[in-house]
């Protein structure tokens, strides 16, 4: 298939633009998720969104807003739950993930047939996006980038050490919770547009690949965003050229880029010479 001819189709242009937006938005947020080592947030938020959508369908509310609202509420709960229980945030993510999955399955069990609509609400397809979807993705990506610029110095301090951030007089809890909500909101908005498969790979792979190349947080954001766009773009082109599922192609491309980064990683090679004391 001539992939240049596909550019004439609105659905393909929309998909390409969505891939770029998702590539930038998710891979930039992915830097925080990788640095905080909380990749489970992707799974937890997607199940919160699913539970929200199912509840909405059962109660007659707007599914998209309900999915977004419940996921953001859950991301708001991660930090306080971890702090109050004095446990790792991954533990609170595990608790939230299982609760949301339980609620979603309960709702699906109670719902009348057909049930595909419920699952479709949160497992989007990048080739079926509307202009409204693109505007929503662009708005969330822009808002995320703006927040990162506004709170960059605080986010950097909190990523380094929450204890130290608090000790120098940063409103560390506010910043940490804001960071978690930002991660949760980005995951949720991209989930019902590009789909979970592509989303999870775009969160972790570009940021993990960028980690291999730099010791500067600022550079890591830039490298991650570039690799995110390359992963998404190459995946969409591969999908168009060989008529393959788009999400799967993006996952494979981003994973290959991560593998290549690992092979070329200057950090890995310097670590092989042993840590300094």
């Amino acid at each position: 298939m001539n992939i240049f001819a596909l550019w004439d189709f609105v659905f393909f242009r929309n998909a390409a633009l969505a891939a770029v937006l998702c590539g930038v938005g998710c891979s930039v947020i992915g830097v925080f998720i990788v640095c905080m080592r909380i990749p489970l947030i992707g799974v937890a938020m997607s199940h919160a969104a699913l539970a929200g959508a199912v509840i909405a369908l059962l109660t007659g509310l707007n599914p998209a807003w309900c999915a977004f609202g419940l996921a953001v509420a859950c991301s708001l709960a991660i930090g306080p739950l971890a702090d109050r229980s004095r446990m790792d945030p991954n533990i609170s993510l595990g608790v939230i993930f299982s609760l949301m999955m339980g609620l979603a399955f309960l709702g699906i069990g109670l719902a009348p047939e057909p049930k595909n609509e419920m699952l479709g609400l949160v497992w989007g397809n990048i080739l079926l996006l509307s202009h409204a979807d693109l505007i929503r993705m662009a708005a969330v990506t822009a808002a995320g980038l703006l927040l990162i610029m506004l709170f960059y110095k605080e986010f950097r301090a909190v990523l380094f050490s929450r204890t130290l951030a608090a000790a120098v007089g940063i409103r560390e809890r506010l910043v940490y919770y804001l960071l978690l909500v930002l991660c949760g909101a980005t995951v949720t908005v991209n989930l019902d547009t590009v789909g979970g498969l592509m989303l999870f790979s775009m969160i972790v792979n570009p940021a993990a690949a960028a980690w291999q190349f730099t010791y500067r947080l600022g550079s890591m954001f830039v490298i991650s965003a570039v690799l995110g766009v390359i992963s998404a773009g190459s995946g969409i082109l591969l999908s168009a050229a060989f008529d393959l599922p788009a999400g799967a192609c993006v996952v494979i491309c981003s994973s290959l880029i991560f593998g290549l980064s690992l092979a070329l990683s200057p950090k890995r090679r310097s670590a092989a010479h042993g840590p300094r004391n």
């Binding site: 050490s161 204890t163 500067r216 947080l217």
Partner: peptide, 30 residues
């Protein structure tokens, strides 16, 4: 304040200068 045994991720991409600048972050404000 220098806390005892400050734990941080050794692979985290932060330079010594960026860590020192954390000391200016609280003063500067949100």
């Amino acid at each position: 304040y220098l806390p005892q045994n400050l734990a941080f991720d050794e692979g985290l991409p932060v330079s010594a200068l960026e860590v020192i600048l954390i000391g200016r972050t609280g003063r500067r404000g949100l």
